[in-house]
């Protein structure tokens, strides 16, 4: 590099951070309304399941049902937020608010922007898992009859798994967004992909209870793997073979994330 061509623009990590920071800053602007759902929803769940439904259900794998479901919800909260952020959120920034037009005029590449988007989804996943964990633990301290204490300290890993899970769902959501022409199309994916995943990936009941024919399908979808990891860690189950689940998450995130980046870049840099 010659003197007159020295690099003046910020290095990669700062560019990624500034994209992440932009989203965090705008999110923080309305922190009370934005943080209300992850802190309040666990309370609705506890009333509905802890005081109601849960009393009619047998313990699963030695856990009261409310606790079994709670462990799954630590992870699904990160799925929902990452999926919303990178479908509706990304689409609105791209097509309606023209946020990306502004950012791409600054020294930020389309790739930086898209990877920054995923990292932000991951961070929101961390935050949402943490919020659910925090609220459930709080209630356990006050009313252990309604909500038995989650397995400490193992369950403290939930926000980290929430991060990885949200990164994975962020990548998937961005890939979907790259195909979508109107914002209404997201409804297909919400009802057709995310809702079934919530019910059939070991969150509400164990995957082994599914009909034999459908079990491989559960193995194929992403949420099953994040949920299995948190359950094994919470159960202190050393016999679990988590290698497959960890590999699945890494490969899925990398492959889908790369594909999403390539496709969205084409949409941004015409």
């Amino acid at each position: 590099m010659t003197d007159n061509k020295q690099q003046l623009y910020p290095p990669l990590y700062k560019r990624l951070f500034s994209v992440w920071y932009r989203h965090a800053r705008v999110y923080r602007q309305h922190i009370f309304s934005n943080a209300f759902p992850p802190f309040f929803e666990p309370l609705i769940f506890l009333v509905g399941v802890g005081l109601g439904l849960g009393r009619y259900i047998e313990p699963i794998d030695g856990r009261p049902y409310v606790q079994f479901l709670a462990i799954g919800l630590l992870i699904t909260s990160s799925m929902w937020t990452a999926f919303f952020e990178c479908t509706f959120g990304t689409f609105i920034r791209m097509e309606f608010q023209k946020t990306y037009d502004g950012m791409l005029a600054a020294p930020i590449t389309a790739n930086n922007l898209i990877v920054g988007e995923m990292l932000w989804a991951g961070s929101k996943g961390f935050f949402f898992s943490f919020a659910v964990l925090f609220m459930l633990t709080l209630v356990s301290l006050v009313a252990p009859d309604t909500m038995p204490m989650l397995p400490m300290p193992n369950v403290l890993i939930a926000p980290l798994i929430g991060f990885a899970n949200a990164l994975m769902f962020g990548a998937m959501a961005l890939l979907i967004t790259s195909f979508v022409k109107t914002i209404n199309h997201f409804n297909f994916f919400m009802t057709g992909v995310i809702s079934p995943m919530f019910f059939f990936s070991g969150v509400v009941f164990p995957v082994r209870e599914l009909p034999r024919l459908i079990q491989p399908v559960a193995e194929f979808v992403p949420l099953t793997h994040s949920v299995r990891i948190i359950r094994c860690i919470c159960d202190n189950n050393l016999t679990c073979n988590l290698l497959w689940d960890v590999l699945y998450i890494i490969i899925f995130t990398t492959v889908i994330g790369t594909l999403a980046t390539k496709r969205l870049k084409k949409r941004l840099i015409k």
């Binding site: 910020p10 700062k14 705008v26 602007q29 309305h30 608010q97 023209k98 946020t99 600054a106």
Partner: peptide
């Protein structure tokens, strides 16, 4: 380069000075 695009694309959630501070970060 400074770019003034055809359509305004300010962050509606933020105020004037917050918009500028946020953008200054992109230049480190």
């Amino acid at each position: 380069c400074g770019v003034v695009p055809q359509e305004d694309n300010l962050d509606e959630e933020l105020n004037v000075i917050q918009n500028l501070r946020l953008f200054a970060r992109f230049y480190d």
